[in-house]
């Protein structure tokens, strides 16, 4: 197989005395969608925050596209093509939709390319164009999630980390968001690492999956195998 675009080798992190991640290892290959599933507090979001340099890594290494990024500070990652859609969307509520999008490509200074990319985001998400000058915080939950994804796309990512895109959304909108995620993956060739509580949907959309429990990877397999696994079905799919 090709070189992984992202590799975590025995990464540990903690909040104060509480160990949040215990020697997590995982690989993401270019072009695939990888799901990370697990219960509340399993360390899924912490893993993403550790990759992005928000949560400090205590041991282990993180390699992105051949470069170790363990100690690189967060703001330098979008330049390298690594961007995160954080949990709970975290758009800028009092800035307009357009300003939110512009901030997504903050490191870029080529204005015409940025404008072209805004148009490209609109072609994916026409609803954002209708709300161009509206404040981000006045959008509905689903629209905010779309804006958060659009904002991340503005940095032209090679690898997109998505943290719980289905959080707090109606089932119909969740389905739509997942369609968009697949579309971004196939049409733009963006590799996606997806963190989800909704294990069923996440595994259906992805090719491989990791299962996290109390800060450690307990299972890693293809998505189909995980979906068929009776243990997984019992623990995460509610059967």
């Amino acid at each position: 197989m090709a070189e992984p675009i992202l590799e975590l080798v025995e990464v540990s992190a903690s909040y104060g005395k509480i160990k949040a991640l215990k020697e997590i290892s995982l690989k993401v290959y270019p072009g695939e969608i990888v799901a990370m599933i697990g219960a509340n507090g399993a360390g899924k979001s912490t893993t993403l925050m550790a990759i992005c340099g928000i949560v400090p890594v205590q041991a282990g290494t993180i390699v992105y596209a051949g470069t170790p990024i363990t100690t690189i500070s967060a703001e330098r990652l979008p330049v390298m093509g690594l961007c995160q859609v954080p949990e709970g969307r975290r758009i800028f509520p009092r800035l307009s939709v357009k300003e939110n999008l512009i901030l997504g490509g903050f490191y870029r200074t080529d204005k015409s390319a940025i404008d072209a990319d805004i148009e490209r985001v609109f072609s994916y998400f026409p609803v954002l164009k209708e709300r161009l000058n509206q404040q981000g915080g006045t959008l509905s939950g689903g629209e905010q999630q779309i804006l958060a994804i659009g904002r991340a796309l503005m940095s032209r990512p090679k690898l997109l980390l998505l943290d719980e895109p289905s959080l707090g959304l109606a089932p119909m909108i969740v389905q739509k968001i997942f369609d968009i995620i697949s579309e971004i993956n196939t049409q733009e060739g963006v590799t996606i690492l997806l963190v989800e509580q909704n294990a069923n949907l996440a595994l259906q959309a992805s090719s491989r999956g990791y299962v996290l429990e109390t800060g450690a990877v307990t299972m890693a397999d293809t998505a189909d195998a995980l979906l068929a696994n009776p243990k997984i079905r019992a623990a995460y799919l509610g059967e």
Partner: peptide, 15 residues
């Protein structure tokens, strides 16, 4: 303004 609105998100966006 991005920092005012959400510092962590701003950092993730490369600010």
């Amino acid at each position: 303004e991005a920092i005012r609105e959400d510092e962590t998100a701003a950092e993730l966006m490369g600010v």
